[in-house]
Structures are given as structure tokens and as C-alpha cells.
């Protein structure tokens, strides 16, 4: 009973009470996993990831594409998941921050964020990581301006950006070295 009341409160605060009648089928891949879910067409991709798939790394802040906290990679490109309907992800390939670590080991990019103190409260970090990941995927050797431009859609209220910039730059260098070795 207590559990039920809690669920109800939760549904009301997330502001997308789902309708049972108008369900649509969504098929996509999230972090390499095949996903098939029946969803309400008004559901945002952000809420689908968080509420349905319980991938809480992707954060909700501004809800209008300004802050970048909800950034995920969709078909190779970074997008703000608060401005994408979940159903628009039909047939697509999504990567969230949970998809960065491999076999229980943090990615180079994540390691450098930790190493260089590129976070304080950490709320913007998943979005920062996804923008940086998308940048390095399409441009393994970015200029300083490339990094600034790619990261300019992500706001951080703690660090002042310097450490974030340095972490991306160092991660890019380490990734290139790793690639040469392999």
C-alpha cells in the first residue's frame, strides 16, 4: 500500500502520467542492448531512459535544451534527450553515460574527469561526458576551439570549465596513444 502511494506521487511529479490506451511500440538499442517497450507517445526520451530503463545517469535540469545535462548519443550524434520524444528513437542506437565503461572498467574519458577533478557536484558530468565522447568519436584529434565548441552546449555551475576542458584534451591524447599501441 505504501509502495503504491509512493508510485502515484512519483508519477505525478514526473508530469507524464502515461495513458494505457494510446501505447506505441518502441524498438531501439540502448548501450548495445536491444530494447522493446510499449510507451505513451508523449513520453520524452529522457524519461524513457530514466523511468523505464532505470538509467539514472542521464539528468534532467532545464527541460528546454539549454543546459545539456540530458545529453545522450543518438545514432552517433549528441542530442538533448529532453527535446526528443522517446518514439522518435525508433530504430536508433542510443548511448548513455552507463554505456561508457567496458567490462567494469571506466573509460579513459571518465578516468581523466576523475584524475583532473573535472567535477564537483557531478550533476552535469554525464552530459559533459556524452558531448565529449561524441566529439572524440568523430574527431580524435580536436583543436582547443573544437573542444570548446563541442562542449559549449553543456553548462556546469561548479568547476569553471577549465578542468573539464583539460580532461577532454588529455583523454583525447591518451586515446590516440592507446590506438597507436593496439
Amino acid at each position: 500500500m505504501a509502495q503504491k502511494a509512493e508510485n502515484k506521487a512519483c508519477a505525478m511529479t514526473t508530469a507524464h502520467a502515461e495513458s494505457m490506451e494510446r501505447r506505441v511500440r518502441l524498438t531501439c538499442r540502448v548501450n548495445g542492448q536491444f530494447v522493446v517497450e510499449d510507451i505513451d507517445p508523449t513520453m520524452l526520451l529522457l524519461h524513457f531512459l530514466r523511468d523505464r530503463l532505470k538509467l539514472f545517469g542521464t539528468k534532467e535540469a532545464c527541460g528546454e535544451g539549454e543546459c545539456g545535462a540530458c545529453t545522450v548519443i543518438m545514432n552517433g550524434r549528441p542530442v538533448t534527450s529532453c527535446l526528443v520524444l522517446a518514439i522518435e528513437a525508433e530504430g536508433s542506437e542510443i548511448t548513455t553515460v552507463e554505456g561508457l565503461a567496458k567490462n567494469g572498467e571506466l573509460s579513459i574519458l571518465q578516468q581523466e574527469f576523475i584524475e583532473l577533478d573535472a567535477l564537483q557536484c557531478g550533476f552535469c558530468t554525464p552530459g559533459m561526458l556524452m558531448s565529449a565522447r561524441a566529439l572524440l568519436d568523430r574527431n580524435p584529434d580536436p583543436t582547443d576551439d573544437d573542444i570548446k565548441e563541442a562542449m559549449s552546449g553543456n553548462l556546469c555551475r561548479c568547476t569553471g570549465y577549465r578542468q573539464i576542458f583539460d580532461a577532454v584534451k588529455k583523454a583525447a591524447k591518451r586515446e590516440r596513444e592507446e590506438l597507436k599501441r593496439s
Binding site: G65, M74, P78, V79, S131, S152, G153
Partner: peptide, 9 residues
């Protein structure tokens, strides 16, 4: 125009 994320959509 806007940001990398928005320009992709």
C-alpha cells in the same frame, strides 16, 4: 545556431 546538440536535431 544554438549548440552542437540542438544543431543535430
Amino acid at each position: 545556431l544554438a549548440t552542437e546538440q540542438l544543431r543535430n536535431r
